[in-house]
């Protein structure tokens, strides 16, 4: 059992995938000799060369578009968008093209493709190096949206994602790259898309989270357990689309109380859909209103450290919400 950081998990799995599948290419800005601005692709260029590790022009639209074309012609590209904040020039290519190709051609032209993008705040990245963009894409049928938050999950989901015959958005929380260390089993395994994971067991309340919010929620839960005897069950979504409602509902049947936490803006965030599903399908099981804690509805994460902390779903803030829910 190796101990790895999230970043090492990404890098090692990319290396492994490229060894395993000849038709995988990695492409993006600075992914070549530089190894990526976060070093997620370090070593790939030396190992596989410029034909499989492609430094692209500084043009997100065509990073995705060229990847789509390569996917049509035999490749399974893994495109990197350097920061999720810069994915928007490619929005049309992702939403109108990659997501719709299979459907609009009645299955003739699938687009097997992974788009990796580091997202999230906590690195003093300000408005344009901190954004969470997942809700723009969870809205769109035809896209898988993943957001694993531990080394083990990153490895298992990336291994599975590269075998799925459709576009996958693979969001990696950049604050967690070096912050989170965890065990990665030595034996080969895959994690299916659409399977949440219970990261902490508890009987009083259910908390659904992913990304930085997941780790902060675990911290908050441990503290509440120790100091106040509140036992929270923490569900790590890992996969936003498909959404593992089975696991969420099963926990909710036990606790009757649920809090959804994410860093993305609260309004219209993925938590809103989860809350709506619960309201429609689990109303009878609820002992308290469905609660949400999302990012404040300001355009993006501010730069100055206290302002950034104000924005982020940190443990104290989550603990407050958890207490409110437990006491309801």
């Amino acid at each position: 059992m190796a101990i790895k950081t999230n970043l090492q998990a990404v890098r090692d799995t990319l290396m492994e995938i490229m060894e395993r599948y000849d038709n995988v290419v990695v492409m993006g800005e600075d992914v070549g000799p530089r190894g990526g601005v976060f070093q997620a692709t370090r070593g790939l260029y030396d190992r596989f060369g410029p034909d499989r590790v492609i430094d692209t022009p500084l043009a997100e639209l065509s990073i995705v578009a060229v990847a789509i074309g390569m996917a049509l012609n035999g490749y399974h590209p893994i495109a990197e968008i350097q920061f999720a904040d810069f994915i928007f020039p490619a929005f049309n290519q992702i939403v109108n093209e990659a997501a719709r190709y299979r459907y609009r051609s009645n299955g003739a032209w699938p687009v097997p493709l992974i788009i990796r993008a580091p997202y999230g705040g906590g690195v003093s990245g300000g408005l344009y190096h901190s954004q969470s963009v997942e809700a723009f894409f969870t809205h769109v049928p035809g896209l898988y949206v993943l957001a694993p938050s531990t080394p083990k999950d990153i490895v298992g989901l990336l291994r599975a994602a590269v075998q799925v015959p459709d576009p996958v958005l693979f969001f990696e929380h950049k604050r967690l790259y070096g912050l989170v260390k965890g065990e990665v089993p030595d034996d080969y395994y895959e994690i299916r898309l659409g399977e949440a994971d219970i990261k902490r067991r508890g009987d009083d309340i259910t908390v659904v989270a992913y990304g930085l919010a997941l780790h902060e929620a675990i911290k908050a839960a441990d503290k509440l357990s120790e100091q106040e005897g509140i036992e929270a069950e923490i569900i790590d979504l890992r996969s936003l689309v498909p959404l593992d409602l089975d696991t969420i509902y099963e926990s909710l049947r036990k606790t009757g109380k649920i809090l959804i936490v994410h860093e993305d803006n609260q309004t219209g965030g993925w938590g809103a859909e989860i809350a709506a599903r619960i309201a429609e399908e689990m109303f009878d099981w609820l002992d308290a209103p469905v609660m949400r804690l999302g990012g404040p509805d300001v355009p993006a994460v501010p730069y100055a450290p206290p302002l950034e902390r104000w924005f982020l779903p940190l443990a104290d803030k989550i603990a407050g919400k958890m207490r409110e829910l437990a006491e309801y």
Partner: peptide
């Protein structure tokens, strides 16, 4: 039909809903 291709590596919780 045919929004996604079939894959044994994907688990859908709810039949008949696209995102679940």
């Amino acid at each position: 039909e045919g929004v996604f291709g079939d894959s044994p590596l994907v688990k859908w919780s709810k039949k008949g809903t696209i995102n679940g």
